[in-house]
Amino acid sequence: MKKLLDTLGHYLDVTLCNIKLALMVIIEYPASIAGWLISNPIQFIVGFATIKFVVAQFGEINGWNYGQLAFLYGLSVISHAVSMMFFVQGWFMGYSVIEGDFDRYLTRPLGVLYQFFFTTFNIFGITDLIPGIVVFIYGCIETGFRFTLGNAVGILVMIIGAAFIRGGIYIMLGSTSFWTKSANDFGQYTQEIFDKSTMYPISMYPESLQFILTYLIPIGWVSFYPVSGLMGIETAVGIGSGNVWITFAVGIIVMLAAGLMFRIGLRRYESAGN
């Protein structure tokens, strides 16, 4: 127990040092952040405007009214932003496998995955958070969502679980490079699939696809099921305010599976030849 706390303290200490250094790099190269600050929010606002347009045309999507869609969309963007802050490196894991970047992490006395994600801390992810929060608040007002301690904790738990599901999937996709030995860049495809299946209700897709998104690649748990639970909308797995906790559990399971796959892959790591 004492040893565990000591280890946690050590990792926290290194993380804080990394965040400090990341901030210093931003201060040193401020131009690099400007692009993010402008392009990301614009992207999401445009996406949201699209929904507004669709809803204006059809009144609602699969029984979801405008406010509920905003609520869903907002939370999806928020968990995306959190996953970008902590796990964006996963998109580039293939390159690190091929380029031999893990050499450095392997020769240091810390977890390899930890170092991979946290030695280049992506503070820019925060910029994605802002449009997400704006749309989410809008959704709350529109639906008259009443905050209680229970559902506030639920939303927090759901965001963590959702970020874990996203991050875990990035890690699994990235780890395939240990086997293929090529830098598979899944980033863009993954993002499109995530966007399409977390920003809109998946009940609008064919049942077979819904099944896959629920049980096989559990993206449905990123936002659709937990938000359905919070909004009191019935789904294929039933209504439940407990859905947020299932999201959390699914997040942990996906993350553990991803960690295991990464570990097995790392044994096949061949560094970079010359």
Partner: peptide
């Protein structure tokens, strides 16, 4: 991206 002393500082923590 870092200055040498910053890299060293990180190693000191690691």
């Amino acid at each position: 991206d870092l200055r040498l002393e910053e890299s060293f500082e990180l190693l000191r923590h690691i």
